[in-house]
């Protein structure tokens, strides 16, 4: 009788390597903690208007890098699902997209708070349809629609195929909505037309926290995603269905 793990890893199919999961989980949790502590304690250059909120760079920007990593993982598994028809690929695509959307929502909310007390200080504005924010919101709606689309089908293979095709098209919109379009619009966001981009103003000392922050939050995505995939695989075995 093969064990659960053996069954899922037979023939190179996408099971969960629990040993590896546990190792990475421990490393990631320590790293995220270190980033949070370093983010508050390490000295940064003072800039008018930004002041201490420059530290949000360590927390807000990794949310969006994590979203991009998550939807790339999701699209990869969608592609593999179209090639193999293995429902576990479909499960992975859905979980990666869902966890990615959660990070995206956190990115949008943290951006709103940051903007409220810098761009819109003294104006009591929380949302002013800045192109960068609007496009980011549209991006989240596109991935929200992916999750809603899945609920419209009862047959797992059909649901998987249609959702996978949609997911691949959704990935194509990411560079346009998050980078190309907002950078051509009059946005207050760094990197937009007339504003210095990240590399122009980030002090070298901040990169010691920023780069580990990218790695840590993407790692945190991976931990949560793998955790959910494990639960979803159990559900798949019990029901023979993905959703």
């Amino acid at each position: 009788m093969p064990t659960l793990t053996e069954r899922f890893t037979k023939g190179g199919s996408p099971g969960v390597n629990v040993e590896r999961y546990r190792t990475i989980r421990t490393v990631v949790l320590v790293a995220v903690t270190a980033v949070a502590v370093g983010g508050f304690l390490i000295e940064i250059p003072r800039i008018q208007i930004l002041e201490h909120t420059a530290r949000n760079l360590y927390f807000h920007v990794p949310m969006w890098f994590t979203l991009m990593a998550a939807v790339a993982v999701s699209a990869y598994h969608s592609l593999r699902f179209l090639q193999t028809g293995d429902l576990r690929r479909d499960v992975r695509a859905r979980e990666a997209a869902l966890v990615g959307v959660v990070f995206g929502i956190l990115g949008l909310l943290t951006g709103m708070v940051w903007a409220r007390f810098t761009w819109y200080q003294g104006t009591n504005i929380w949302w002013n349809f800045d192109p960068k924010q609007s496009m980011a919101a549209v991006q989240l709606l596109i991935y929200g629609a992916y999750l809603v689309l899945r609920t419209a089908f009862d047959e797992p293979q059909k649901r998987g195929r249609i959702a996978a095709v949609y997911n691949l098209f959704a990935l194509v919109t990411v560079p346009f909505l998050l980078f190309i379009l907002p950078r051509q619009a009059p946005s207050l966001h760094p990197g937009a037309d007339g504003n210095p981009a990240f590399s122009d103003f980030t002090a070298p000392s901040m990169r010691w926290v920023l780069y580990p922050a990218f790695a840590s939050f993407i790692g945190l995505f991976w931990v949560i995603y793998t955790q959910r995939v494990r639960a979803a695989f159990l559900k798949l075995r019990l029901h023979g269905d993905t959703d």
């Binding site: 949070a36 983010g39 508050f40 003072r46 930004l50 002041e51 201490h52 909120t53 530290r55 949000n56 927390f59 807000h60 949310m63 966890v99 959660v102 929502i105 956190l106 909310l109 943290t110 708070v113 940051w114 409220r116 007390f117 810098t118 200080q121 003294g122 945190l220 949560i224």
Partner: peptide
């Protein structure tokens, strides 16, 4: 703003970190 702009806007960073923390807890 009286709260959030105090201490050179450090509380904005606290708010951002708490949003992420509560979001992840909810999930």
């Amino acid at each position: 703003e009286r709260v959030m702009l105090a201490e050179d806007k450090l509380y904005v960073v606290l708010a951002v970190v708490l949003i992420i923390w509560f979001g992840l807890i909810f999930f």
